[in-house]
């Protein structure tokens, strides 16, 4: 995969996945869970929403550093050859005011059925500023994509 292909592959992966694995941490305990995410044209921005009572919200309040794993594995042997996985590494900040509205529009465009959930008063909308993606293809080939 050359460099141009790498970016195209990443974009394709981001556009094809609805859900990723978000990793947060608090007091040295890592914590991973599934979240619905959305990525606008700028791939270095990711949006997700979470209830303010959730453990991940609690973790994010303590430590905004996150990573998010997205992949297209099928849980078959073919994954060794065909699956692509990308890990985004960045910092999550809760969006407020007009920024929250901007994020909600991006999020609703991707997950219209989650619009009510995202707009709920008890839901926090987060924006991750991605420092870099680490993308793995063909089991062992790794590229880093960063602004």
């Amino acid at each position: 995969m050359n460099h141009t292909d790498a970016k195209a592959t990443l974009r394709q992966l981001l556009d094809s996945r609805y859900v990723g694995v978000l990793a947060t941490s608090k007091e040295d305990w890592p914590y991973a869970n599934l979240v619905a995410f959305a990525v606008p044209d700028n791939i270095y921005e990711m949006i997700f929403a979470t209830p303010r009572q959730s453990r991940k919200y609690e973790n994010l309040a303590a430590n905004p550093k996150v990573s998010m794993l997205m992949d297209d594995r099928s849980n078959n042997i073919e994954d060794l050859r065909d699956a692509v996985a990308a890990t985004a590494i960045g910092t999550a900040v809760e969006a407020a005011g007009s920024e929250r509205e901007r994020c909600l529009v991006i999020y609703a465009a991707r997950h219209p059925h989650l619009d009510d959930f995202a707009r709920s008063a008890s839901t926090a909308v987060f924006r991750i500023t991605v420092e870099k993606y680490v993308m793995v293809s063909r089991f062992q080939n790794v590229v880093e994509i960063a602004p």
Partner: peptide
């Protein structure tokens, strides 16, 4: 080949 500035190789197999 014009190398994309924001993509860097990390590991090759």
């Amino acid at each position: 080949r014009e190398a994309s500035r924001d993509v860097r190789t990390r590991q090759l197999s």
